[in-house]
Amino acid sequence: MLEIRRESAEVRVGIIGSGFIARIHARASRQAGARLAAVADVDEEAALQAGRRFGAERAFGSADALIESGLVDVVHVCTPNHLHAPLALKAIEAGLAVICEKPLATDAPTAVLMAGRAREAGLVAAVPFAYRFHAMVREARARLADLGRVSLIQGSYLQDWLLKSSDDNWRVDPEKGGPGRTIGDIGSHWFDLIEFVTGDRITKLCAQTSVVVADRVHSGPVLTEDLATVQFATASGALGSVAVSQVAPGRKNRLFFEISGASGSFAFDQESPEQLWLGGREGSQLLVRDPMTLSEAAAPYSPLPAGHPQGFHDCFDAFVADTYATISGEHREGLPTFEDGARAALLTDAALRSAREGGWVTC
């Protein structure tokens, strides 16, 4: 019988933010058996309402008050991007573990600084690259050796939620979202997933960006990219390409990758997460998630029996549970840390520089 690890010692949690992603964090913390001690928001009434929705014990009208309260062991930073670095650094300075939403910072040097501070303090600091926690992503990683030498990596991450000029969000504002919107927001997920699955580093890239919707009703002229295409090469010699867009009609959250090697290929589509496509010269097949047949690496991330679909909530729950287990002194393979967040920020900066200056950039 397979062992399913999902419980952790009680951890006192504080969540900074009250929006959609904060709700996801709150749910995952409860699923992990943690104690949701506090929530904070810049607006006290919003904090109170979020506290009631999330089931928090206390509500604070400022992030500083939560961090300094002495009531929490780990802080979840679920704010607009420009606040990630100052709040995460303050939490680290206070001796608290941190889960900080991506992008870790709006520029690579700050993200590298954050990773260094967490390392020096000996604190657990994690970034929600939650797609790592799909069971079939873990299965792909475990099967990588079956492909032989990897030659080609391709894929995309496509959304359409910013397709119209009336679609607006703080992420469009570079002062709040950072200079790389689509690359930093969703491209970072794709790059992290590829380096995680292959264990290979992207060493150089060449990028193009485009603004498709020139003006937003509330934000005005758009200064950050709606879409980008990136070519790259890895340390092992594989070539790759990816397209990322937040203006691709009909695509809601399609993260896709395909990896080809000397003796086989595999492909994963986040919108069909129960399957992994396996390709070979003699034929191909769809491997369906089943905890009874998955590899040892993937089985712990398949808590439901075959035929009971798993999705984003399950991934996020697993990420948070593994973070709390690490805080409690256990080891969890593949936990995305601030080091991984800094790596994603470096790739984002490299892609923006390539698009701005033209040509290839080392990274």
Rank of each mutant, 00 (worst) to 15 (best):
S260M: 13
A56Q: 07
A111N: 07
A135R: 05
Q310C: 00
A145R: 15
S210H: 14
V212L: 07
L71N: 01
G70W: 10
W190F: 11
I99M: 09
T209D: 05
A130F: 12
G19F: 07
V11C: 06
A37L: 02
I24Y: 03
A26M: 07
T323E: 02
P109W: 13
A207Y: 11
K102L: 05
A342S: 05
L89T: 09
S18F: 06
R53P: 00
L87R: 03
V127E: 06
T182C: 13
E68V: 00
A47I: 12
Q246A: 10
A243C: 11
E258N: 06
A32Q: 04
L347N: 02
G61L: 08
D200K: 06
P300F: 06
A32G: 01
L162Y: 11
L147K: 04
E271M: 14
L347G: 00
Q275F: 14
K204L: 00
R12M: 01
G240Q: 14
S265Q: 14
F232D: 04
S165D: 15
D41A: 14
F316A: 00
V320A: 02
A28E: 06
G180I: 06
S188L: 03
E10S: 07
P86C: 05
D160K: 02
A135F: 05
S69Q: 09
T79I: 06
S263Q: 15
L227C: 12
G177V: 05
G70N: 08
R132I: 04
A91Y: 07
D215N: 11
T362W: 08
R171K: 11
A28C: 02
V244M: 09
G17F: 07
G240F: 14
L346M: 14
L147P: 01
A350Q: 08
R181N: 10
S302E: 12
A238N: 11
P273R: 09
W190M: 04
S210M: 09
R289N: 03
H84T: 05
D107G: 00
G116A: 05
E258C: 04
A91N: 07
R143H: 05
A85D: 09
R281H: 14
A238Q: 12
G237A: 07
G341H: 11
Y301R: 03
D322R: 09
F338L: 01
G199N: 12
F133V: 02
F319W: 15
R216G: 15
P300D: 11
S260W: 12
L287F: 07
H331R: 15
T348W: 03
I4W: 11
G51Y: 11
A32M: 04
E330V: 02
Q154E: 15
